[in-house]
Nucleic acid binder design. Structure first.
Lengths: 193, 193, 193, 193
DNA sequence: AATGAATGAGTCTTCATTCAT
DNA sequence: TATGAATGAAGACTCATTCAT
């Protein structure tokens, strides 16, 4: 109601554009993705994209921003369904993995776009990512760990492990949920010797 | 004495070229690195590179190959200085991190070049990388772990964690040796609750 | 009226480009013609050509295609103005020569581009040319020749003779019409001894 | 005896180089042939060619020159084995065709190099070719033809027809000797109606 | 809200040629 | 006689971007 028909059409086109950009950036990286190829896949001309976004970088920013919001939402939703600290962390890891390993998911661009690849945006992108990772800072703060445990290193290890999954993950690997369970178990329990 | 003047000259220029390529590929990725910029930094003309290598891809291959050989050597050397299984793994992780976090080190390209980025070389690069990772397969096989432990997942977690370090590592972070020690401790000992 | 402003503008530039390409390909061959030089002569930038055609080969194809259509049309028109078989053949030869000896004529590329010169297009170009030469197959079929006459060799001889004319023809040579008359006479009548 | 071992070796290498250049120029044209590819095929380095010839154009000139001399010799030898004028012409045509259709024969470059393709050499090449064609001028002068026959056009027709043969000739076509016989018959005898 | 047409800077690569050794 | 190493100019082509309509 708040939007006229025209505006809604506009919105639709913008959304389609954003979706396509997300997919391609996630799979092919920033440099590997061309404005042309995005346009082509949604029956638009390259020039038309510049009506919606003022540059390729701006388009990436928009996608990244949505991506962060979406995965934040997803992970938060997952967390809320568990109650104990370790369970909540595992739920978060599982949700994160799912997002990150799904080709069509915005979340993927968060780990597939290397901020350093986009000279002008490095700082902003890094900040956005850090903002998201705060979720994990908190989850790990809530863990009943001894004083000697370096919670920062704990987080860096865990996030590194799950972000790198995109490199080796294949559809017939363990499921994201299983990976989450196994990784959390490695961190939590004494190795069974 | 071992080399004639001609060979030495040849080697020198080729080596300089290889070094520069390694540095740039490591920092900026395959696509982000241009033949031009490599040439410029070593006072060569772009075309001259093609006297030494028949294509940009061939240059990457050469660099990658040397990179794998170098880090394999380094890690193997480090391993030999420790005796117990956990100590050997920690030594390997430490050496790996050192290689991977040093901008001027060839090793870095092994984790900074995403094979998928280089269409024609994807398979070969992946094979080379896997060949290197066999070292870790063996180290982890030697660990005194219980039967229920999935050693593959163990390796994927550990390697993921240390490969991702390049994303968050800053010169004033913990040293590679410290990171290695901490990560190994996380995997080995019960979390101190 | 028949065309919108947009179409007309489009057509004009594309046509100018095609014309220039035809001229240069005809005179200098495929390899001897550069995208740069075509662009330069029509005040375009080399890159702009790729808006109209996706590659140099595609440009040649387009030119060749138009060339075949034009000379087919011209020769067919000429044929229709004569009635007896030998007259029709002579008219065809005359029209063919005119097309082939005029620098600004598309037809010229049909004999000046050696299909083998353009690896990827060899088959297609040859087929197009053969399609055109069918006109001569038919004209010669209609000739009242004895059974012992090899009509294929007859055609190859005649077409070879007239295609080679581009090599020796000068503006002050015999006119195309005269050449046609003389050549046909050589083939038809007993040599006057 | 007149040459030292060194000089003879030199000559051999030069000859090999010339042969290879002839073959490639004949098959791929001037522009389609690279100094590199000639060198490669005879285990020489591109730069070394410049010891023997001062430029690619000079190399072509040398090849062309030898080519003209060789085909002149061959055709003259063939002529001498026939006695009557038409027989002599047919022998010449047959020998010419054989030279021109054999990939490994120098003669081929006389018709496969389009003088216009080599800007700086156009005039010289054309003169050399014309010098060779004088043979045919004489053979046709000796023919018992009526006064009304334009002997120049007669020659241009015949030579055009046989030079163009390279375009349609296939190893399983009529043999050069047969082609010669048939073409001469077309010119000499009344068409059998 | 989008398009057709083009730009300009840059991409990798090729090639004839040079020259010290 | 020849080579190893390089040059410089040009080759086809790509890409983010612009702008009048």
């Amino acid at each position: 109601m708040a939007h006229s028909a025209v505006e809604r059409r506009n919105n639709n086109r913008s959304t389609i554009l954003l979706d396509e950009a997300a997919k391609q950036f996630a799979v092919k990286g920033y440099r590997g993705t061309t404005v042309r190829s995005i346009a082509q896949n949604i029956d638009m001309l390259p020039g038309s994209i510049y009506y919606h976004f003022k540059s390729k970088e701006a388009l990436l920013m928009a996608v990244y921003d949505v991506g962060v919001k979406k995965i934040t939402q997803t992970v938060n939703d997952a967390i809320n369904e568990a109650s104990d600290p370790w369970g909540r962390l595992e739920a978060a890891v599982s949700a994160h993995l799912e997002g990150v390993l799904d080709e069509s998911n915005y979340a993927r661009i968060i780990i597939n776009i290397i901020p350093a690849e986009v000279a002008g945006l490095e700082k902003t992108l890094t900040e956005l990512r850090n903002g998201y990772e705060v979720i994990f800072v908190k989850l790990i703060d809530d863990l009943p760990l001894g004083k000697s445990v370096d919670r920062t290193m704990f987080r860096l290890m865990l996030l590194g492990a799950i972000n790198w999954a995109k490199v080796w993950y294949r559809p017939n690997s363990e499921s994201p949920a299983n990976i989450a369970r196994i990784f959390i178990k490695f961190m939590k329990d004494p190795i069974d010797t």
